[in-house]
Design a protein around this nucleic acid. Structure first.
Lengths: 170, 170, 170, 170
DNA sequence: TTTT
DNA sequence: TTTT
């Protein structure tokens, strides 16, 4: 894998929901998570504490997807390293839409026990595995379904999002 | 500035067009650039060389915006460090759209002379300045116009993009 | 603060001992910690699991030094971002020695409660503060005492290390 | 390759001298470079411009070592990503010494032509290759000779450095 | 000297 | 939708 340029993202944050894992026709796993990072500061005028949460859509492939899907849970704190990828897809209105994701190539669980306090879901002891075997099927990854949420005002694209079965080019 | 979580992006790439600078009501500068990073690899089946270019929308504020606007040019190679921010805006059809940008907090010109091979635009000697003074007016940055059209087929969202005069909340 | 070049370190690891805090003549705090990161892999020949631990000497200044000294403990998991600095000092034999440290400019505690399971030391609730106010007194930081340890085979320079009261140029 | 913790370094700087390449008994290449990064600032008291140069010892293995050795030259601007490793060795006085290096796992040439203004050494067109094939023979890399002497007063450890033929454990 |  |  050679390249010209550097395209690197580093995140430490918490999962807003349990991971969603799907499988590509090839059999390879694809896992999506949403990771929140937040920034806090004091308003210079009023001195009031402010907060802004940023949500990041992260996608894992293959072995890393399996590990993420198995060990991460809603609330888990995670370190993710990857690269930015903007995908184009069509809304139901036929218009082009764009979604930017972080394609992860490294992941580390940062919770002591390896699991979040997800809603009842048991998470087995974590392997802390990561590495290059989790690499995307280089520049031609698989489709993903929308995050189940969609709600909040600062949330990422959701509603009209391409589905796993949709015929969208990547 | 305190925070919980890490939200960091590092790019090294080239500008697809000259920077665009605007000014906020406060008088602060806002500069946008589009940065290309590319990945090359060999197809495992055919052995054919492949390439995928990723375009990154980068926004600078205040002093860093002035420096970027003054010294960067189409073709300039640049190092950018910043954080991801996804903004919501409304398309002309009233639908919600999302755009992910890198809000830069550090910039370094990597061309020996400090200028790209821009189309005629003269770029004065580079200061290599960067630093925290370029910080965004924390979590409430200014509107931006669309990239003038990065040209290529893999260029970033453009057409229906919110304009500087549009009434969009950030 | 301007610069030419990029000098950046990102660590996620655990403290091998409680932080050590001192004060500069100026009154500014200086805190040192040792952070372990480890790598695990399987021997390709024997298939035996292997591990290598790397120890990193991290130094904080001013406000960040106070926070690190107050909230971190032996065993704490921490995110550190900073830059490399190699200091020259004289051994008791009059010979030059060099020590490489990470001068931190950002720190995040990654333990849920903000404290490690240090040996009895109580750590109050963490502020998760970080930021640029923790910056070093640019390129002329203060002396530090040796890490109290020194023991292990993979440990960093210790024995003959310059003391806080020593007259060493930085 | 699994791990617990993150140990990451990112450098953008210039080579202080031509690379030095050696070969391990296994036949694998090992290349060392010294990279300068510098920081500039204004003295708060006097307003005088100040500068501090930091020198980084970087080591490449295998394929990446061959590329670095072939295409980099004194003065080349380079992007390096890697991890910190502190090696212990014995001075001629029998005392323990420690040297911290960056073990590179990615490298990008940032000069337009791919070569520095080295003293006469011709450097062929650059491939911009990088990647994981350049990985170190995990946690048990090869000995290296001293940098030929970076010259300047702020140059890295040199004199008493272990030689390729010395019997030093890694 | 940490952590799993 | 997370976390403090």
């Amino acid at each position: 894998m050679a390249s010209r340029g550097v395209n690197k993202v580093i995140l430490v944050g918490n999962l807003g929901a349990d991971p969603e894992t799907r499988y590509m026709p090839s059999g390879g796993a694809v896992t999506n998570i949403n990771v929140a990072t937040s920034e806090q500061w004091k308003d210079k005028q009023t001195g009031q504490p402010q907060e802004r949460t940023e949500w990041h859509r992260v996608v894992f492939f293959n072995r890393l997807a399996e590990i993420a899907g198995e060990y991460l849970r809603k609330g888990s704190k995670v370190y993710v390293e990857g690269s930015l990828r903007t995908r184009k897809w069509q809304g139901q209105d036929g218009q082009d839409r764009y979604t930017t994701e972080i394609v992860a190539n490294e992941m580390q669980m940062l919770d002591s026990r390896g699991a979040g306090q997800g809603q009842g879901g048991y998470a087995p002891p974590p392997p802390q595995s990561q590495g290059d075997y989790g690499q995307a099927p280089a520049p031609a990854p698989a489709p993903q379904k929308a995050p189940s949420g969609g709600g909040g005002q600062s949330s990422p694209p959701a509603s009209d999002f391409p589905d796993f079965d949709d015929d969208i080019p990547f």
